[in-house]
Structure formats: structure tokens, C-alpha cells
Design a protein around this nucleic acid. Structure first.
Lengths: 235, 235
DNA sequence: GCGTGATGTAATAAAAATGTAATAATAGAA
DNA sequence: TTCTATTATTACATTTTTATTACATCACGC
């Protein structure tokens, strides 16, 4: 799911330029030149971040900023102000009103993208790192949560570590010995067959009691691998 | 409790100017001109934010930034870069390395203060006296009051700090050790199991004697997290 | 000093996870 | 096909981890 950016800007050229760059950087972009409409879009469209021009129609950017902050639904929405006004007093006023960052025109699109990313990295760690994704499986390592196709998957500690290791090296095959080293630890003595049992437990959980296609591939006499198309591929 | 700022800067005049302004704005300031020492101070002194000059002794600011991000203890510390290099490529490099904001010299002290406040407001709302909201729970950090679904929740001091820490990082899992560091303090020696007891007290209070859904998620062999859907999603 | 509430520890109960072994199933080779 | 090596699956005893309670101590306001 690409993070969504709400761009509030009335200069059509700028909208095009910024939209192009943001989309190239992996964002979905929604735009409006109108302050009132921006408030509606902000609460209904649930963007991950708002880029707000100071001079826009109907309501000034700073007023939009203030109202976004005041409404509970959008009080925590990251806001990046955009403006031609370079005076220090304005910058400070913008920041103190509740903007998270402040860019003055002319600005480079690449810097804008970098700043949007910096803001998001702070606020929505899930959107830029901290999660491992592969074959419809998503693992949030900070929250210790796993989903497959959006559905929450409960995992025991060992299964969690096992899956994390696979997700860190998707597609690669690991022998039981390698898995014991990586997941259990180098100096732990357990039977190699124990790996089979935990693979079974992981499969059961992540395939939701075998109702979904298996994503763990057994490689006979070699080991196991995580594989999006586990059983379409003949080895 | 005044939030602490770590200022890493080797220009003595600038140090004086910035320190004066930050202290006037209600911050405690710790300074060093040395990159290596900055790393030590960052992990031991627990500043709320780091202001980092690009050109400093021993290690470049950007290298310090990178190392801070890499170390788990400081990975989430807000960083504001400070530099004479105004080139776009540098700004982007700074932001992509993990800086949260970027100011070019010459800058106005007032803008610096405003940016520090903006960063803190986002990352540590509790430090700038706001309210924290998550999953129906609302904490007024200034008034030391907590409500859940509008109902007042009485909390002891430790439970309050514990909940505040969770609210500052909703959803994230913390080990008992991390909680002891963050909530009790780094130099306090108490048993890890003591955390369990306070979690129990927090649960009892915030779930109103177990009449409301639990919002504290136990993550076996990992720790605890605050979680709006605590028991639909285990991991 | 006295009462009140908060705090940390220890003991015990409860729950969950783990490793092993036994047995069934399967793939691949001869 | 038949045999054999390898993996799958299940059940279960044990261990590990967490929950809960009780209690002694401490700090603070009155």
C-alpha cells in the first residue's frame, strides 16, 4: 500500500511537477487548490502527510494548518508547509502553528521528496522500513505483528524468529543446521528434526490451518525456503 | 522536567548563541565539539533531541548521524542537522541518512528553536505538554490526567509513566529491560519481574477491573506493547 | 508519630512454548 | 513397482514464561 500525500496547491505547474516526483518516489497523490476542500479531503481521504501551500484559495494555508491541528481526527497528521515567503517570522509562525516542516520556494523536488520521507520515517515507521514484506506476508518487527493478505497471524516466539529469518532472505534455501544456527543460536543443542516441527507450526499458522497456499518450500535433502510460488515451481 | 538537547558543534560562538536561546526557550543544553563524545553523550545522557553540526571534530556529523541511527538505543532519537553546506545534494544526503530536519547556516536562533519544538512536538508530545491519544485513551500530560472513553482513570505515578511511554510509542513492543530504562531510569536497579507487577496494575486500572477490553498486549519472550486490538492480533 | 498509598520482591498458580520420540506419509531411486 | 531415505504429523512430558496475589517496606502529608 503506497502512502498517500495530500497536496494543497493552486499553481498548476507546481502541482504537476510535485505530483510527478512524488509518484515516482512511490506515493499516491491527491491534490486540491482549495483550502476548504483540503480540510474535507484530509479527514476523509486519510492521507499519510499533507503538503500545504501558504497561499491558496478560500483559506490561507496557515489557517488550514491550524484547523487540521484542532480537529481530533487530523491533529496528528504530519504537515509540510510550502511557500514563497522566506522571511524568518513567517517560517517560525508556520512551525509554531503546528507544521512539521517548512520549505521555501523555489525548492527542488528531490529535496521535497526527501523531506516527506523524513517526516514519514518518524511518524509512520511502518511505511518506510521496520517491516518485512514478501509474498503477501508482512512483518512489523517493532510491533511484533505479522499479517498475510491483511489478516493477522499469531505466532509463537520461535516461529516468529524463523519467519523473520526467512523474510530477511526470501527464496533462499536453508539447511536445518543453518536454521538452528540462525534462529536458535550457535551454541544451542537441539535435534535437527526439531526444525521440522517448527516448520510445521509455522506452516499451520501462516497458511491459516492449510486454507491458503503453502509459502514454505521443502527442498528434499537440502532444507527449507520461503517461496511465494512454492508449489508451482518444480525443482 | 525540562527536555534536554545535545548540541554537537565546535564553533564556540555558535554554541554560546544557540545554548542561550535554547535555555531561554526552556531546554537544558549539553554540548560537545567532538563526534566520538557525542555518541557517548547521546546514549548516556538521554537527550530528547540532538543538534548536529556537519563539520565537527573526529567524526563528521553525517557519520555520527548514521551511527546514532544504527545503535538501537539511539535509533529513534530526533536529529537536527546544522551546516554551512547549502547544496541540495547535501541536504538530501543529510535527510536520507536519518536526520529529521536540516538547517543551513546562517540561521536564526529563533527558527532553530521553532524547529526543535516542531520535531519534539511530533516525537515526544509529552515533553511539550500536550495530550496523548490512542485507542480511546487520552492522557493530559500537563494535568496528569487520564481518561478512557471519557471515563477518568486513576493511576499511580509509575503506572502513569509507564502508560505515557506506551502512548508515546503506540503499538511498539518493549522488553522489560527497555521499560525499566525508559520508565524507571537507567541507573535504578529493580528486578525485571517488577515490570510484570506494574503491568498488572496498569491493566487493572485502565481496563477498569477487567470490564473493558485489554489494551496491553503481552508478547511472549519479548515484552509488552500498547495495542488497540490487543487480543485479536497475537504475535 | 500516624495513616495512606505506592513500591518492589517473593511465592505460587496458570498458561504457553518447546523439544523429543513415535508413527505415518511421501518422494525418488533402482 | 518396490524399497529406502527423507519429511510430515501428532501427542506428550518438560521447561519456560507470564499472571496474580500477598506482604514488608518506604515516602509523604497531616
Amino acid at each position: 500500500m503506497r502512502p498517500k500525500v495530500l497536496l494543497v496547491e493552486d499553481d498548476a505547474n507546481l502541482v504537476e511537477l510535485v505530483t510527478y516526483n512524488l509518484e515516482a518516489a512511490g506515493f499516491d497523490v491527491v491534490t486540491t487548490p482549495d483550502g476548504e476542500e483540503a480540510l474535507v479531503l484530509a479527514s476523509e481521504d486519510e492521507p499519510a502527510v499533507v503538503i500545504l501551500d501558504w497561499m491558496i484559495e478560500n483559506l490561507s494555508g496557515i489557517e488550514v494548518c491550524r484547523r487540521l491541528r484542532r480537529a481530533p481526527a487530523t491533529a496528528n497528521l504530519p504537515i509540510l508547509m510550502l511557500t514563497a515567503r522566506a522571511e524568518e517570522a513567517d517560517r517560525i509562525r508556520g512551525l509554531e502553528t503546528g507544521a512539521d516542516d517548512y520549505l521555501t520556494k523555489p525548492f527542488s523536488p528531490r529535496e521535497l521528496v526527501a523531506r516527506v520521507r523524513a517526516v514519514l520515517r518518524r511518524l509512520r515507521p511502518a511505511l518506510s522500513g521496520g517491516t518485512l514484506d514478501y509474498a503477501g506476508i508482512s512483518m512489523d518487527t517493532a510491533a511484533h505483528k505479522v499479517t498475510r493478505g491483511g489478516q493477522a497471524i499469531p505466532l509463537g516466539p520461535t516461529e516468529f524468529r524463523l519467519l523473520r529469518h526467512f523474510l530477511e532472505h526470501p527464496g533462499r534455501v536453508f539447511s536445518r543446521e543453518q536454521l538452528l544456527d540462525a534462529v536458535w543460536g550457535r551454541d544451542v543443542y537441539v535435534e535437527q528434526r526439531t526444525v521440522d516441527v517448527h516448520i510445521r507450526r509455522l506452516r499451520k499458522a501462516i497458511n491459516v490451518n492449510d486454507t491458503l497456499p503453502d509459502v514454505v518450500r521443502t527442498v528434499r535433502s537440502a532444507g527449507y525456503a520461503l517461496d511465494g510460488d512454492a508449489h508451482d515451481i518444480a525443482a
